[in-house]
Design a protein around this nucleic acid. Structure first.
Lengths: 211, 211, 211, 211
DNA sequence: CATGAATGAGTCTTCATTCAT
DNA sequence: GATGAATGAAGACTCATTCAT
């Protein structure tokens, strides 16, 4: 619903322009409230207030709180997934080392790019079908990664499915830690390297040299 | 909180024994309700009912809902941490490979040992200071691991702090995935191996051979 | 209200024709929504949507929801009243038995003729001044009946007022029952006969033979 | 639920006494609010306020508004049904005329006995499954009446089922009219006689002399 | 100490109505 | 005139917490 509104709106007739602005404002407000107050206090009223619209308007675009949260989460996940997919697409046929680098790097960067949102949304994960959404997007990304791994120029993988799911989930742990603690740029860079190391060394370990 | 209560009751007179039983019942009930109904519907009334006591009694032991949840979470984290610490203690002076194996294995096993609890508690993490508790316990475990790594018989580590935090958080990602999806015992074993691989290969990569 | 609008538009210029069509559509939509969703969920928005017009337009014709409902109810009551009145007019001077037959029959038939509407509107009765409207129309019908009874060829009535009000209200009970239960055509015919019997026997009982 | 609470409470322990009082207060308040404000404005908040308790208490005894209204309606219907049944039981074996008199009389008296309640509840009929409740109780009463009619000392009935349902519903129409208009005691008495006449003449008409 | 009835602030959600376009 | 986005008051319902018994 909301995705549709956002996705397709090449022509913004005056009326729709207002709507789009409202929806946008609500999305942003949701993240702000989430960050400032926490999931528990992220009420529809507060979101609407922060967005500068009435509750009624909020409900015009989202059937209920659950869907609002899910929509915001989904949007974020989609952005991250797309970033990773773009990076993977550009790395087909390269070495496994480069692939590991790309996986860890693009994921980390995408998340860091919207730190606020990422952090705010962790709380939404466990409820509102958030877990399911994450699973869905993770599967989608894992598939992309698996496809890429099969094109490695120097190594051959068995069980690409499992392997890609494991790298992905392994990476997200440290990333989360980085996001939540406010680490110094320096330490952040160090950790970035470690995460890449984690990915590359694991990938090498579970693959065989291809002649 | 609850730990405190327990800690302060070395002598169990009949009356105190009852208290302990009640506290125990409440803890268990909390997890059950959490599992069955979700954090949102995990109300003090429901927990008390399930535990077979009155709400009033519940409030005798926990000043409020927040503390109840925190106590349950803390207890779980403590169990896991202790398991990992025990395992680490028994692996001082061994090879890095064995250490990686032990870290991943003990953590995974401890979590799997009380799957229900682990899964139920994920939702509590983001609220009620759960994140902080987790951070605290993770730091404690990371420290234990760091100490162990320094005793490695075959390898030398720089930045043990960072390394141990990274392994730990890297491991928890896949573990969580295993817990949430109900995977077949077979796949579970496969993943277990992969997680161990992940840990050992990373540890080798970030260390140097010690002469 | 709506009746007024209709009354005042003998000439139907193209524009007014559209208005009439719109009003008609709204009336029908109201009954449909009432039937499908119940009074509580019969909102102006839903009615407008069903009628294929905007809420704004609906408010062009009816100042508020209350009036809309009242108008629909009034229209229905008027139809029934007119049917009964026509039947009565054609029965002046006949026997009391025929009169009872006509009262019960015409009322029942008029109601059955638009079962949907009748049933849907029961819920409107108790609110929106519905009760008052009903009272008003019932009085009007009772008066018509009273006038007819006085022309009976074979019987003489005292208290025609009371008598006609009693028949009328007595008849409506069973009719309603027929409307609400979905009875078989067979049983329906049986009940029809009984209702007629009810009316005729009562009328005979409360009247005296006229010499 | 509520019926149960009321029905069985031979021993009123202190604690229950409070509950019973609360429930009673809520029931009364409901009728008062219904009378004073109408179904539409009969909100749970208002009822609670009028009853001098908190909304929370109301919801302790009734799961939702619907059930509250249904409970009040049911209680009233039960009272009326019982009155009619008692009267019928005492009239087995008598003449049909006496039976008609008893049916109409007891029904009318029972309703008049709690005019306020009766009137207030008409609005509840059409919603909240009220219609169904009424149908249920009417069926119960009709059955009682049917059984009685079969014992008539002077007349034989075919289709007792239909007959008793028709009398019952026929009677309720005028009764309602009496309740809603505030008629003079005099007219009320007149109408009472007419209703009885209605019942008796119909019963005679649909039966045959038994030898 | 245990109990569980009572409280009422705080949620989500709906809907009649208005008014800028 | 038509439209439908925006409004916000109001309602149903929940639940952490207290306290008289």
């Amino acid at each position: 619903m909301e995705t549709v509104l956002l996705a397709l709106s090449p022509r913004k007739t005056p009326i729709q322009a207002r709507s789009v602005a409202t929806v946008e404002a609500i999305q942003i407000a949701t993240i702000q409230v989430l960050t400032a107050e926490g999931l528990g206090r992220c009420t529809t009223t507060r979101v609407a207030e922060r967005a500068g619209v009435s509750v009624g308007s909020l409900y015009q675009y989202y059937p209920n709180r659950r869907c609002l949260l899910a929509a915001v989460l989904e949007r974020h996940l989609a952005l991250v997934a797309e970033a990773v997919e773009r990076a993977c697409a550009a790395t087909h046929g390269r070495t496994t080392r480069e692939m590991g680098r790309v996986i860890a790097g693009s994921y980390l960067d995408a998340k860091l790019h919207e730190v606020e949102t990422s952090t705010a949304l962790y709380s939404v994960l466990e409820e509102h079908g958030g877990a399911q959404l994450v699973k869905q997007f993770r599967t989608r990304m894992a598939r992309t990664i698996a496809r890429m791994l099969l094109t490695s120029s120097d190594r051959r993988f068995d069980e690409v499915e499992t392997v890609s799911e494991v790298v992905l989930s392994a990476i997200s742990g440290p990333i989360r830690a980085v996001l939540e603690k406010s680490v110094s740029p320096n330490l952040r860079r160090t950790i970035r390297e470690h995460v890449i190391l984690l990915a590359t060394s694991y990938l090498r370990e579970v693959s065989k040299k291809s002649t």
